[in-house]
């Protein structure tokens, strides 16, 4: 099976799968801890998304390069060491870029290590695919993750503090819904988005079924 996949070409789908069909947050529900914890503002969501994407790209790339060297017995340990290395790198880079972002993200940068989305990609994709294909897939997954974080972050910031990226959106009369910034707000907004996506999917399926039956009806007539 591994050999079969290796021959697979890089298609648009390799990239897009992470954005929609296997979106790590909205479809696979992976890495929920940072998703719920740091998405109380757009800026935090963006920083977390980019940091995770960086770690994802670097570590799956490394896993893909080393996939034939790493013995099966210790592969998980090896993946975790690789992921932890890049998380430490990102931790220092963010400190060097902006202390404000670093303070806002707090412990969640270090916790990228245990984001199961990254370990999942390393195990399920990078360890079986060549470097270029892995990178394309990881980029798609990273962007999908970032978009999902932004979806949550923008709604929570808008409702929770009446601002978007720090700029006031509503007038002074707007009373912020503080709960949206607190952990329960994260669950509410995530639930809302999941509902929306499930609804869209269902409609797509229904339409497909209806089309098929209509075509079938035509044939009979």
């Amino acid at each position: 099976m591994a050999a079969g996949q290796q021959q697979q070409p890089i298609t648009m789908d390799t990239f897009l799968v992470g954005l929609w069909r296997e979106n790590p947050v909205f479809v696979m529900l992976l890495g929920m801890c940072p998703v719920l914890a740091v998405t109380n503002s757009v800026a935090n969501a963006l920083a977390m998304g980019l940091a995770t994407t960086f770690v994802l790209l670097c570590s799956t790339g490394m896993v893909s390069i080393l996939r034939s060297v790493i013995p099966k017995e210790v592969r998980i340990a090896a993946y975790i060491v690789i992921i932890a290395t890049f998380v430490t790198v990102v931790d220092y880079l963010i400190q060097a870029i902006s202390l404000e972002i670093y303070n806002a993200l707090g412990a969640f940068i270090q916790l990228i290590v245990v984001n199961c989305m990254i370990l999942g990609r390393a195990e399920a994709f990078a360890s079986r695919n060549r470097l270029s294909r892995t990178m394309v897939n990881s980029l798609g997954m990273g962007i999908g993750f970032t978009i999902a974080l932004l979806c949550l972050g923008s709604v929570r910031e808008l409702l929770g503090s009446g601002e978007l990226l720090g700029y006031p959106v509503f007038g002074a009369a707007f009373e912020p819904w503080v709960i949206m910034l607190l952990p329960p707000g994260g669950f509410f907004v995530l639930g809302g988005w999941l509902l929306l996506f499930a609804w869209i999917k269902e409609r797509q399926q229904q339409r497909a079924v209806r089309q098929r039956t209509e075509e079938a009806g035509h044939d009979v007539r």
């Binding site: 591994a2 050999a3 290796q6 034939s68 013995p71």
Partner: peptide, 14 residues
């Protein structure tokens, strides 16, 4: 391991 051997392409060293 056998499977990968049979398929030949993956993990040559291993």
């Amino acid at each position: 391991n056998k499977a990968s051997e049979a398929n030949g392409a993956n993990g040559v060293t291993e």
